[in-house]
Write a protein that binds this DNA or RNA. Structure first.
Lengths: 108, 108
DNA sequence: ATTTAATATCGTAATATTGCAATTTGAAAA
DNA sequence: TTTTCAAATTGCAATATTACGATATTAAAT
């Protein structure tokens, strides 16, 4: 079907899945890493950095934005992008919880 | 196209994308959380815990296994599952790096 | 050997994702 | 206002994912 039964899972599970889905593509990982590789906002330089056509990059940026992973600010002719630290903190907190639970298990 | 241009990105980017893709579905998040919710290995009880048919669950388990997120051990008639702490540590380390880089940026 | 129970695989339908050419939009510059 | 340049949107083709019924496999139990 290709259709996820989201209604069968709780909000938290759907939310985490969506956040991780936004990062589940090498181009989007590359975008995030590029944004972090420079000590400032990136204003309109992303397309040239990626081996993909402009509409494709635009689409990936949209998905990252929708998931809240990056923020974009209109800056004159172009757009200024940077990574949203809040959501990174949220992801870290999630995996921290998982890791804590793992410490109590001593099997396999 | 639906085909990812993996060859255009580096190994690390493809690897992270694949790991996160394995977790980018509420059913697979639910599986991991269920495995963690019990203080031992889970032996053949997963299908009943999920609102999905057995072949669907089996497929999700396979994807988690392929990505190295869970480990399965044949245990008599059924299979014993648990979360692979190594890969969780790897994910945490990745987001830790991201977070450190974020601390040096003070824009947006 | 047969039955039983758990999990895997196959086949298939429905939907989602990826990618890009063509086009449009939006805002600054001329 | 026209041009220009960056980014978004549209439309479409190719491939991937999700889900499940039917069936196969596997290993213990009878």
């Amino acid at each position: 079907m290709g259709i996820t039964k989201s209604d069968q899972f709780n909000d938290h599970q759907n939310k985490m899945a969506n956040i991780l889905k936004a990062l589940a593509h090498p181009a989007r990982i590359a975008i995030v890493e590029y944004l972090l590789s420079v000590d400032s906002c990136i204003c309109g330089d992303i397309v040239n950095e990626l081996p993909l056509a402009q509409p494709t990059v635009s689409q990936h940026l949209k998905e990252l934005k929708n998931a809240g992973i990056i923020k974009g600010t209109i800056e004159g002719k172009g757009i200024c992008y940077c990574v949203n630290d809040d959501i990174i903190a949220e992801i870290m907190s999630y995996f921290n919880t998982i890791n804590k639970q793992l410490n109590f298990k001593k099997c396999c």
